[in-house]
Amino acid sequence: MIVAEAKPFDEIKEMVNGYRKVLVLGCGSCVTVCMSGGQKEAELLAAALRIARGIERREATVDAKTILRQCDEEFVRQVRDELSSYDAVLSMACGAGVQGMNEWLRNVPVLPAMNTRFIGLCEGQGKWVEVCAACGDCVLGVTGGICPVTSCPKGILNGPCGGNKKGRCEVSPDVPCAWVLIYERMKERGKLEEFKKERAAKDWSKRQRPGRYTHRP
């Protein structure tokens, strides 16, 4: 799932400064699941903007709404007329949603309220962790199902660096050393022989941007 987080309020406020009538548009998919851009957050952001504008004695039409997905034209089309009555739409979707909306909603600028962060898993209520870097060359099959490209800040492929301490990562003691986890998992599964195999350098050409995928090439 895609995880995004709201931009700092001041940045958002600046961004919509020149627009009188603004719609904060939540997205009902990934960002709702990660709690940062669903209806609840859209309402809250809209309220905050109304207050800030109220204090500055400025036009304070800021509404909130949510659609199921901003990254598909069909969903956007259903609300196009309604959205067209605003001077700007402040999208709480991921970067894909914002770009799609701009493409399909030519007459209204769609601005990003979010910083799109990563593909992640929930690790407890209200907490997400990046687990996949979308590297295009998946190694999970030989790393016990734990991604070193993502979970190790250095993304190294042949075992831990010398920096782990008490099973924690050198870069931040808050996170476990991915390679310690991989080693343990593979040991538990009797796959240490696999662990010992040298892994060649990654083929980064798979990550050439913009990535494209065709279902039936």
């Binding site: 009902g28 998919s29 709702t32 699941v33 709690m35 669903g38 929930c122 407890g124 209520q125 209200g126």
Partner: peptide, 10 residues
Amino acid sequence: ECAACLNCVR
């Protein structure tokens, strides 16, 4: 409107 995010479950 439930997005099946499971926050309530948690």
